[in-house]
């Protein structure tokens, strides 16, 4: 039987995932509430990113249960899972996520355009998000013409533009220096809190994890919720 904490928006229990002979997840648990920022920590190769990919419905687990908003994810078709990812989830990765041929504002507006929003309205919403992330002056530039820190803020704006209920951030500051990394974290958590979005923050950096409300530690594919452990 699966047990998911009451009121959680996204929850997983007994997750297992193997890649060939390698066990990436071995009974991992997870839960997050709306408006909560949870850091997923652990050494390289511990299964942090696999956990994120399973939670986000990118990779199906071999066993275990994942529920979003009370609904079992395994019961959804591929099309339904894709639709869920597009409308309810936002993603920020370490690098390489902006489309180089598009301007920054077009990049931010892209998820809205894919959901069928008209160009003018999509770009107006995109610019409002870019303003919150302090990069509204970069709208006409292409990703290759902005700094790493600026590009990452554009990526955060793009992740939040559809008003996702869960933001998945995998080492979002991994390619930035301390000052830029901290500013990205400040803006990211502020923006997420103001929209009551839950943030799943995968990081190995303690100063980044310090922006979370609590942390879980993944080691050898097993997770440990430190709030309940202490």
């Amino acid at each position: 039987m699966t047990h998911h904490p009451a009121g959680s928006l996204l929850a997983a229990s007994g997750l297992r995932k193997t890649y060939g002979p390698t066990t990436a997840l071995d009974g991992a648990e997870f839960s997050i509430h709306p408006g909560e920022v949870v850091a997923v920590m652990g050494p390289s190769g511990s299964g942090k990113s696999t956990l994120l990919h399973c939670l986000a419905g990118i990779v199906p687990p071999d066993a275990g249960s994942i529920t979003y908003n009370g609904q079992e994810m395994a019961g959804l078709s591929d099309t339904q899972r894709s639709a869920l990812r597009r409308s309810e989830f936002g993603f920020v990765f370490q690098f390489g996520q902006l489309v180089p041929e598009l301007t920054c504002v077009e990049n931010v507006a892209l998820p809205l355009r894919l959901n069928g929003t008209g160009r003018k309205e999509a770009e107006r919403t995109a610019l409002a998000w870019m303003e919150r992330l302090e990069v509204d002056d970069l709208g006409a530039k292409r990703p290759g013409e902005v700094s790493g820190g600026q590009g990452q803020r554009v990526a955060v704006a793009r992740a939040l533009v559809t008003g996702p209920r869960v933001l998945f951030a995998d080492e979002p500051t991994g390619a930035l220096d301390s000052l830029n990394g901290e500013r990205v974290m400040e803006l990211l958590t502020e923006a997420a809190r103001s929209t009551n979005a839950a943030v799943v923050l995968v990081t190995h950096e303690a100063r980044v994890a310090a922006y979370s409300d609590r942390e879980i530690v993944v080691r050898d594919g097993k997770s440990r919720d430190m709030e309940r452990a202490v």
């Binding site: 922006y211 452990a229 202490v230």
Partner: peptide, 19 residues
């Protein structure tokens, strides 16, 4: 390992206050 996990959690608690 438990001792280290608990200590990490305590360090992070203080880091959150400072942040």
């Amino acid at each position: 390992a438990d001792l280290l996990d608990t200590q990490r959690s305590e360090h992070l608690r203080m880091m959150r206050i400072l942040t």
